[in-house]
Simulated scan of single mutants.
Amino acid sequence: MEPPRSHGGSAPFRGVASSLQKEFNAMLFHVEMDVRIPHDIAAEKVDALKQAERVHAMELQRAGAWRHLWRVAGRYANISIFDVSGAQELHDMLSSLPLFPFMEIKVTPLCRHPSSIHDDDR
Results as ranks from 00 to 15, higher is better:
92 D>T: 13
12 P>H: 07
16 V>I: 15
15 G>E: 05
15 G>I: 04
117 I>W: 08
8 G>A: 07
38 P>N: 09
14 R>Q: 09
96 S>N: 12
75 R>N: 01
83 D>Q: 06
93 M>P: 02
23 E>V: 08
12 P>K: 14
116 S>D: 05
110 L>I: 05
69 L>S: 13
46 V>N: 11
101 P>R: 03
46 V>P: 14
114 P>E: 09
89 E>H: 10
91 H>W: 03
76 Y>Q: 13
71 R>A: 12
99 L>V: 06
106 K>H: 13
30 H>K: 14
27 M>L: 05
38 P>V: 02
40 D>C: 09
111 C>N: 08
103 M>W: 03
95 S>E: 10
32 E>F: 10
77 A>H: 03
53 E>L: 02
23 E>F: 14
45 K>M: 11
22 K>N: 11
95 S>Q: 04
79 I>G: 10
90 L>W: 03
91 H>P: 02
19 S>Y: 13
88 Q>K: 12
30 H>A: 11
86 G>R: 13
21 Q>M: 07
81 I>V: 15
76 Y>S: 11
109 P>I: 09
19 S>Q: 04
107 V>G: 11
96 S>V: 05
109 P>Q: 13
55 V>Q: 14
15 G>T: 05
85 S>D: 08
44 E>R: 12
41 I>K: 02
66 W>V: 00
11 A>L: 07
52 A>T: 04
53 E>A: 13
119 D>P: 04
71 R>P: 00
90 L>T: 01
68 H>I: 04
42 A>L: 11
85 S>T: 11
1 M>H: 10
110 L>V: 03
11 A>Y: 06
9 G>E: 08
106 K>E: 14
89 E>M: 15
67 R>D: 10
70 W>P: 03
119 D>R: 15
36 R>L: 15
97 L>T: 00
64 G>C: 11
66 W>E: 00
21 Q>S: 03
83 D>P: 08
28 L>R: 07
75 R>H: 11
60 L>T: 09
68 H>M: 14
12 P>V: 05
35 V>A: 06
52 A>L: 09
72 V>A: 08
93 M>A: 08
24 F>K: 06
104 E>W: 05
15 G>M: 02
105 I>T: 12
112 R>M: 13
82 F>H: 07
76 Y>W: 10
82 F>R: 01
5 R>K: 09
119 D>Y: 05
14 R>L: 13
40 D>T: 08
56 H>D: 02
12 P>G: 03
112 R>L: 11
49 L>D: 01
69 L>H: 12
3 P>T: 00
115 S>K: 11
7 H>M: 07
58 M>R: 13
26 A>P: 03
42 A>W: 00
12 P>W: 01
84 V>N: 10
21 Q>C: 14
36 R>A: 14
57 A>N: 04
38 P>K: 04
22 K>V: 12
49 L>T: 05
90 L>A: 03
110 L>E: 00
100 F>R: 07
24 F>D: 02
90 L>G: 05
18 S>W: 01
6 S>Q: 09
52 A>Q: 15
87 A>F: 10
81 I>Q: 04
66 W>M: 14
39 H>W: 04
81 I>S: 02
31 V>A: 05
29 F>E: 05
82 F>M: 13
121 D>H: 07
1 M>K: 07
64 G>P: 08
45 K>W: 01
53 E>F: 05
60 L>W: 06
17 A>H: 13
50 K>G: 05
74 G>T: 06
3 P>G: 07
84 V>F: 07
62 R>N: 08
51 Q>A: 15
58 M>A: 09
18 S>H: 01
98 P>D: 07
